[in-house]
Amino acid sequence: MSLALDLALCGLILCVALGAVVGRGVFRSVIFFITYGLLLAIGWARLGAKDVALAEAAIGAGLTGVLLLTAHGRLRRMSVERAPRVGPNPMAATTGIAVALALGWAWFALPAPTAPDLAAALPLTGMGNPVTGVLLHFRAWDTLLESIVLLAALLGVWMLARDVDWHAPLGLRYHARPGGVLASFGRLLPPIGLSFGSYLVWAGADGTGGAFQGGTVLAAVVLVAMMAGVLPPPRVAQGGLRAALVVGPGVFLLSGLLAVALGMGFLTLPPAVAKPATLIIEVALTVSIAVTLAVLVIGPPDDKEPVR
C-alpha cells in the first residue's frame, strides 16, 4: 500500500517536472516549478528526511518560487521580444535520456550501503538531531562556506545595479493600499512567522529544524512585510543591514579562530561547551540567513523600470 502511495507521488512529481520543461509559456513553467517544490517536500517526508523536507518546503517551494514569479513579471514588461518558440530537440532528448539511463543503471549497480558511524561521535557534539550534528560539527567547514556562498551571491546581485541607482533603497518601490488585504496580511504574518521561525532554530538541536530552515521562514516574513509596504527596504549604505549580513558567518569563523587561539583545532567545539556554543552560532547564522535571503530576493537597488 505504501508502495502505491510512493508510486503515485513520484508519478505526480514527474508529471509536474515534465509540465515545467515541455509546457509552452514561461509562466506555466514557473507555476509548475512551484508545485514541484511542494511535491518534492512531500517526497522527502516519505523518505524519512524531515529536515530536508523542511528545507525544500521553505526554499524550493517558497523562496525560489517567489524569485521566479517576480522575475517573470518584470521580464514580461521589459523584454523586447518573446523567446523563440522551439520544437522538440532530438539531440537534447538523447542526451537527457542517456544520462537518466546511466544514473538508473548506477542505482542497480550500487554496492551494499556503507555509512560513517555517527552514533559514537554524536554525543560529543551535544546535538540530538544527527543532521544538525553533521552540519554544525562534523562538516562545519562546509556549512561555513555555504553561508558565505549566500553572501557572494548577494554581492553579485548588488553588482547588477545601475550606477545611478546605487544609493537608492534595495529593490523596487513596493506599496499597498493602506488598510487593504495585502497591508493587513503584511501585519498579520510577521508575529506568526517570527515565532515559528525562532521555534525552528531552537528545535533544530534535537528535533526537526535548524538555522537554515528557520532563517528561510524569517526571510519570508521580512519579504512579505517589505512587499506589503510595512517595512521600508534598506539601502546598501545602511550599516545595520551590512552588519546583519555578516554576523552569522563572522561569529562562526571567529569561533573557529578562537579555538585555534586556545590551542584546539580550527572550528573545534569542545564537548563541554558544544551545545551553548552551537546555539549561539546558530542564532547568529539565522539572523544572517534571514536578512541575506530576503534582500537577495528583493534584488539590487532599482529606481524605476524602463517602459518599452
Binding site: A61, G62, F185, L189, L223
Partner: peptide, 8 residues
Amino acid sequence: VLAALAAV
C-alpha cells in the same frame, strides 16, 4: 506559511 509568499 511559505505558500502565502508565492501568492504575494
